[in-house]
Amino acid sequence: TFVALYDYESRTETDLSFKKGERLQIVNNTEGDWWLAHSLTTGQTGYIPSNYVAP
């Protein structure tokens, strides 16, 4: 799992909003700078900017 370093507000319907400190499970990280992730807090799935999270 990864932890959010910053808050992120989604800009498209495929993005995932999250708050700093939220735990995220990475589903697919082969898309370059945008990873498909599942929030362990909200249960939602969407794309996140990879530079906003850390292991």
Results as ranks from 00 to 15, higher is better:
Gln25Val: 15
Asn29Ser: 13
Phe2Asn: 01
Gln25Cys: 14
Tyr52Arg: 07
Gln44Ser: 09
Thr41Ile: 12
Asn29Phe: 15
Thr30Cys: 08
Lys19Ala: 08
Thr30Pro: 09
Val53Leu: 08
Ser50Pro: 08
Thr12Pro: 02
Lys19Asp: 04
Val27Leu: 15
Asn28Asp: 15
Ser10Met: 06
Asp15Cys: 08
Thr45Gly: 05
Tyr6Gln: 10
Lys19Thr: 08
Tyr47Ala: 03
Gly46Ala: 03
Tyr6Asp: 06
Asn29Val: 14
Val27Ser: 07
Glu13Ala: 13
Trp35Asn: 02
Leu5His: 03
Leu16Ala: 06
Phe2Gln: 04
Pro49Asn: 08
Arg23Met: 15
Glu22Tyr: 02
Thr41Pro: 03
Ile48His: 00
Asn28Arg: 08
Val53Glu: 02
His38Gln: 14
Phe18Cys: 03
Ile26Val: 11
Tyr6Asn: 06
Asp7Met: 03
Pro55Glu: 10
Arg11Cys: 10
Arg11Gly: 10
Val27Ile: 15
Asp15Lys: 08
Thr1Arg: 06
Thr30Val: 11
Leu24Glu: 01
Pro49Thr: 02
His38Cys: 10
Ser10Phe: 03
His38Tyr: 15
Thr1Glu: 13
Glu9Trp: 09
Tyr52Lys: 06
Ile26Ser: 05
Gln44Gly: 08
Tyr52Glu: 01
Trp34Val: 10
Glu22Pro: 00
Tyr8Arg: 06
Asp15Gly: 15
Thr42Val: 02
Thr14Asp: 12
Val27Gly: 05
Asp33Thr: 12
His38Thr: 15
Thr12Cys: 14
Gly32Asn: 13
Pro49Val: 02
Trp34Tyr: 13
Asp33Ala: 11
His38Ile: 15
Leu16Trp: 03
Asn28Thr: 10
Gln25Ile: 15
Gln25Tyr: 15
Glu13Lys: 08
Thr41Asp: 15
Tyr52Ile: 06
Gln25Ser: 09
Leu24Ser: 00
Ala54Glu: 13
Ser17Gly: 09
Ile26Cys: 06
Trp34Arg: 14
Trp34Asp: 04
Glu9Lys: 09
Phe18Ile: 12
Ser10Cys: 06
Phe2His: 08
Tyr52Asp: 01
Ala4Met: 06
Asn28His: 11
Val53Cys: 03
Asp15Phe: 12
Gly32Ser: 14
Ser10Ile: 04
Trp34Pro: 06
Leu24His: 00
Pro49Leu: 08
Leu40Thr: 07
Trp35Leu: 08
Asn51Thr: 12
Leu36Ser: 03
Val3Trp: 06
Ala37Thr: 02
Tyr6His: 10
Asp7Pro: 06
Leu24Phe: 15
Gly46Ile: 01
Pro49Ser: 04
Thr30Trp: 09
Asp33Arg: 11
Glu13Gln: 11
Ser39Ile: 04
Asp15Pro: 02
Val3His: 06
Lys20Met: 07
Glu9His: 10
Pro49Trp: 07
Leu5Cys: 06
Tyr6Lys: 09
Ala4Lys: 00
Asn29Ala: 14
Gly21Cys: 06
Thr45Asp: 06
Ala4Gln: 00
Ala37Glu: 00
Ile26Gln: 02
Leu36Asn: 02
Arg11Ala: 13
Leu40Ile: 10
Leu36Arg: 04
Trp34Glu: 05
Thr12His: 14
Leu16Cys: 04
Asn29Lys: 14
Ala54Gly: 10
Arg23His: 15
Ser50Met: 08
Trp34Ile: 10
Thr12Val: 11
Ile26Leu: 07
Asn51Val: 08
Gly21Lys: 01
Val27Thr: 08
Ser50Ile: 06
Arg11Pro: 08
Leu24Cys: 02
Glu31Phe: 13
Ser10Asn: 05
Asn29Ile: 15
Phe18Glu: 00
Ser10Gln: 08
Arg11Tyr: 10
Val53Phe: 07
Asn28Ser: 14
Glu13Val: 09
Ser10His: 06
Ile26Trp: 03
Glu13Cys: 09
Ser17Gln: 07
Val53Trp: 04
Arg11Leu: 12
Gly43Val: 02
Ala54Val: 14
Leu36Trp: 11
Trp35Val: 09
Val27Cys: 10
Ala37Phe: 02
Ala37His: 00
Arg23Phe: 15
Tyr52Phe: 12
Glu22Ala: 03
Tyr52Val: 06
Ile26Pro: 07
Pro49Ala: 04
Gln44Asn: 13
Val27Glu: 08
Leu24Asn: 00
Ser17Ile: 04
Thr45Val: 13
Glu9Tyr: 12
Ala4Tyr: 01
Glu31Leu: 14
Phe18Asp: 00
Leu16His: 02
Thr45Lys: 09
Thr30Ile: 10
Gln25Leu: 15
Leu24Pro: 01
Pro55Ile: 11
Val3Arg: 04
Lys19Trp: 05
Val3Asp: 05
Ile48Ser: 00
Asn29Asp: 13
Glu9Asn: 10
Trp35Met: 06
Asn51Glu: 11
Ala4Cys: 07
Asn28Pro: 05
Ala4Leu: 04
Thr42Ala: 03
